Amino acid sequence: MVKYSSELKAEVVSEYLQGDISISLLSKKRNLPRIQVGRWIQNFRLSGADALKRRRVKRSFSVEFKVDVINYYQTHDENFSRSIRKI
């Protein structure tokens, strides 16, 4: 389930870029979290309109990549659970 539609994201970003409205005022006006509106604007600036669209394809990894990851953790001193906590 998508919480916010691509259309809503595009409208909010467009309104921010067109007007003299701050992120805080825009988020209050649209009843959206300020940090979320800021992320949409930042993503738009970095990657364009495609950043606002929902990805419909689930990422998949090849068997070779998965084996490489397992081998990496087996050959290095780091513990897998410690590595996860760092992220």
Rank of each mutant, 00 (worst) to 15 (best):
S62R: 07
K86C: 02
R56H: 10
N79A: 04
E15L: 12
S47K: 12
K28Q: 15
F44L: 09
R82K: 12
F65I: 00
Q74W: 02
G48Y: 02
Y73I: 09
Q18C: 08
R34T: 14
R82H: 08
L26T: 02
Q74Y: 07
L8V: 11
L25T: 10
T75D: 05
K53P: 00
S81M: 08
K28I: 05
V37P: 00
D50M: 03
V13T: 03
R59F: 02
S14E: 14
P33W: 00
V13G: 01
N31A: 13
V69D: 02
K86M: 08
E78W: 04
F65Y: 12
Y16K: 15
E11T: 12
D20M: 02
E7D: 09
E15V: 04
E7A: 11
V57E: 10
R54I: 11
N43Q: 02
S60A: 07
G38V: 01
W40Q: 01
S62W: 08
S83H: 07
F80P: 09
I87C: 07
I41G: 01
S62Y: 09
N71Y: 01
L52C: 08
K53N: 13
F80M: 09
N79K: 08
R34Q: 14
S47Y: 13
S47F: 11
I70E: 07
S83N: 02
K86Y: 04
Y16H: 14
R82Q: 10
F65W: 06
N79T: 07
V37D: 01
N31S: 15
H76T: 15
Q18R: 14
S81V: 04
E7L: 11
D50T: 14
L46C: 05
A10M: 14
E64I: 11
R59D: 06
Y73Q: 02
F61E: 10
Q18V: 05
P33A: 15
F80K: 08
Y72F: 14
R59Y: 06
I70Y: 02
S27H: 03
R45P: 00
Y73V: 03
G48E: 03
V37G: 00
I84L: 14
R54Q: 12
I23C: 12
